[in-house]
Design a protein around this nucleic acid. Structure first.
Lengths: 350, 350
DNA sequence: CAGCATCGGTGCAACGATGCACCAACACCA
DNA sequence: TGGTGTTGGTGCATCGTTGCACCGATGCTG
């Protein structure tokens, strides 16, 4: 590998000049010198060693991305969007699957810090990000992709999120608009700020419409952090809901992955979507429109959010000052899993 | 951040001794000294700077993972498995989405090399990995997750793959065993070794059974590398197949993502799965068993493969010698998207 | 007791890029 | 001609680890 000295030798200048050239400090430099350096760099195919650069400057162009698991399509989409946005600003992304384990999350963050990483983005942060506050205090810039803005700000963490309460509100309003009065909300364990906010939005909206929204909370076996299990747990939830005394005519799922499982469970009990029961998801995974039937879902502007997250992070890294959190509005995408409510009949399949 | 000198000072030893301790060279070291160092490290919460370490030694504990896009659930699952396996051996994973663009792939690989990365894993490599051979020659260890073993070996690239020809063979045998004689195979553009091998397996198996296997190849608009579009293109393919003069009774898809789209397209034309037409996917995404109906698919032993890929890579990095490629057997998972063939009737929905 | 290993460490020069402090050469002005 | 500015660079110490070369002290041998 060619070093900066090789380049300097070939161009007939000092290493410092090459360094200045590489870092866009050609304010005072003869066009001729500039050109000699440029061609020397090209000739050698020289790429600066980021290790040396980092050792000297103290920072690297790598940011960490902590997600529960990229096996979850939602986080896969996020990871892609973030990586894309990071690359557009000249940064690489290092990927960590935390399985929602706070210990693992802290460990990763520390390891990344030792790596010279000065900024991390956490996807779907836990309810209270206090386990990260120590790192934030140590100068690590942290952006939470989804999370509680108020709580996080107190820990020096910037939040980029959709308005999750509004997401469930849109779903409720949609179903109510179709005449539904018995609506269930199915959520996974309330261990994250996102889930709490969505549930909250559901409760508030249900109350506003004068409904007694039924909430079905899935419980996980202890010591399990299975994002990949969400869909499967959804199946059980679907079975349970189908058997309810007064069966809801509409169901809202915490997210699309859960909704996919719910759909399978409801189907298994002989219920047709949307004829017997309407279903709304959240996230609008690309899978939503491929389902049978295509599913109504609430979309988050992922790409815009990813760019915002990177912007916030780079800002925070640059100025070491708190950065303003940003909340994006979700959007309801109506497809064929929701239909007008049938006049209510007691639970017998007919 | 504490440095190795701080530790040395606290422990009352030289930096060299601390370094030896950190690198497991405690062959000759008094238990007492060892303990003093250990406690000094703990006291300071010292983590060695990987930048400095890398600058000195020339290599880092980071490996690169190049995949088309982690938004594709298949590569999401792969990325998770690889990251898991890498972590078990003390390595971090840096993630790059190549969108199947050879230029981007080479660029990433070069950037990673400048980063001190000495080994990369490419997911689903292109047909001929010659664009990477230069890097392999420069001492970068490369493992192709899926790919053509023979072609790759010639370029100094190790392959960890399932037996893709066998995968389609299993699917064909399964359908033939159910009495199907008209079988279609749907594939995306034949730009990767995996796709070529699967198609090949299909053709050979069809021939062996005396079928004239119908092959439907999806063409992409130029300059599009959309892995996320695969499912959508599957819809169109499904529509087309439903309208065929002599409609096949069984369809095999290049992968599950495509199969999901196919199912949607077939459904849209009023065909029921498996009553009117049987469908088999490949990869066995976790989505396969959540579909309506749950889909028969050919599973790859992803976790074992991921561990093998990391093992191969670390071996290759360690000894800078060619490493043996490894091929894993796939397994057919039968679910409810396949059923015995009905006696054939001309294409009229009834 | 000289001579030589062995043990348990230490000292120092790198690795490659950076950026501050410095400087030669020239222009300009009084 | 001496003093001052400016232009277009250069020299050198430095970041935190590593590993080779070295070294004092102790033990062993003949």
């Amino acid at each position: 590998m060619a070093t900066i000295l090789d380049v300097a030798r070939i161009a007939g200048v000092s290493a410092s000049s090459v360094s200045n050239f590489l870092n866009d400090r050609h304010a005072k430099m003869t066009p001729a010198t500039l050109e000699r350096i440029r061609s020397a760099v090209a000739e050698l195919g020289y790429k600066p060693s980021s290790a040396a650069r980092q050792l000297k400057t103290g920072h690297s162009a790598v940011i960490g991305l902590l997600v529960p698991s990229v096996a979850n399509p939602f986080f896969g989409e996020i990871a892609t969007a973030i990586q894309h946005a990071a690359q557009a600003r000249g940064h690489q992304v290092i990927l960590c699957n935390t399985y929602r384990d706070p210990h693992r999350e802290t460990e990763f963050a520390e390891e990344l810090a030792a790596f010279g990483v000065r900024g991390i983005i956490t996807g779907s942060s836990l309810l209270n990000p206090q386990h990260l506050s120590g790192l934030a205090a140590k100068g690590l810039a942290i952006v939470a992709f989804e999370g509680n803005a108020a709580l996080s700000a107190a820990q020096g963490i910037t939040v980029v999120s959709t308005d999750n309460a509004l997401a469930t509100t849109l779903a409720v309003d949609h179903l109510v608009g179709l005449g539904h009065r018995h609506i269930a909300y199915v959520t996974g364990p309330l261990q994250t700020a996102v889930r709490a906010a969505r549930l909250n939005g559901f409760r508030t909206a249900a109350q506003r419409h004068g409904l007694d929204g039924y909430v079905h909370e899935i419980s996980l076996p202890p010591n399990e952090y299975g994002d990949d299990m969400i869909a499967e747990l959804g199946i059980d939830a679907g079975l349970a809901i189908a058997k309810l005394q007064t069966r809801p005519t509409g169901v809202i799922a915490m997210n699309d992955l859960l909704a996919i499982g719910l759909a399978a469970g409801l189907r298994e009990q002989g219920l047709a979507i949307p004829d017997d029961i309407s279903l709304v998801g959240i996230d609008d995974l690309f899978l939503a429109r491929l389902m049978n039937p295509p599913m109504t879902s609430v979309r988050q502007p992922l790409s815009a959010m990813a760019h915002a997250a990177i912007d916030c992070l780079l800002d925070a890294m640059g100025q070491s000052q708190p950065v303003q959190s940003r909340i994006f509005p979700p959007e309801l995408i109506v497809r064929q899993s929701t239909a007008p409510a049938m006049p209510h009949k007691p639970n017998g399949r007919g």
